[in-house]
Amino acid sequence: MNLYPVRAIYMSEMARTRRTLLQSIVSPVISTSLYFVVFGAAIGSRIEEIGGISYGAFIVPGLIMLMLLTQSVSNASFGIFFPKFSGSIYELLSAPISYLEIVIGYVGAAASKSVLLGLLILLTSNFFVPLEVAHPVWMLLFLVLTALTFSMLGFIIGIWADGFDKLQLVPLLVITPLTFLGGSFYSIDMLPPFWQGVTLLNPVVYLVSGFRWSFYGISDVSVVASVVVISLFLVGCLAMIAWIFRTGYRLKP
């Protein structure tokens, strides 16, 4: 492993984040804050507590997850899609670097940005709702693992996409619905039994539940299940990326 190329990719991706600070950091923080205002303060005060937690506080972990998933995917997918689109990917492909180094550079940068974003939103939420984090280490672990996994998913989407429309497709049509239906805004106990069963097929449920447990010690599914699901997802993405580079899919004719 040569660290220079990894560093070059990582630093250049982080520089891109700095250049687009408004769009990549400020705007997600503001839009999440709007959720806190509307659901937490305005509507939330009229909703009864869930598991002893005020509704405003209850939705914080889910909202962070929502932002974490969409931002990880869109940031990582754009990072690799853009060189493909502009043609400057020739340099990446002709460089003496391994696939692992490419992935660490791109996914690492996207995940770092997402983790930073998640922490910023967490801080912001503190202005709107009283916050407690019961298991900070687990909280960070979930944050980092989720950011990594979904940045990898984004990387895969960025390689698969051959136009800007496809780049938007997965975040809009898959990630957002899964998150909204994944218990970000409610506990799955609140659903009729049949839909509770269906919901358990949604991987995001496990992420949100595990993450919420790290805050308040309450969860919809067991924490072990959460860790297992996210690990499986991580391994799946890794396998997919390994396959992409082995076959040169959409990268190398």
Binding site: Y4, R7, M11, S12, P83, S86, G87, A95, P96, I97
Partner: peptide, 26 residues
């Protein structure tokens, strides 16, 4: 390799993009 098409990251500075290439090549 100098490719045929003029492709580059429009928003980067000359210095940064050339330094990036050096790093990328290890």
């Amino acid at each position: 390799l100098v490719p045929q098409e003029l492709t580059n990251e429009a928003f980067e500075t000359v210095w940064n993009t050339v330094s990036f290439s050096r790093g990328l090549f290890g």
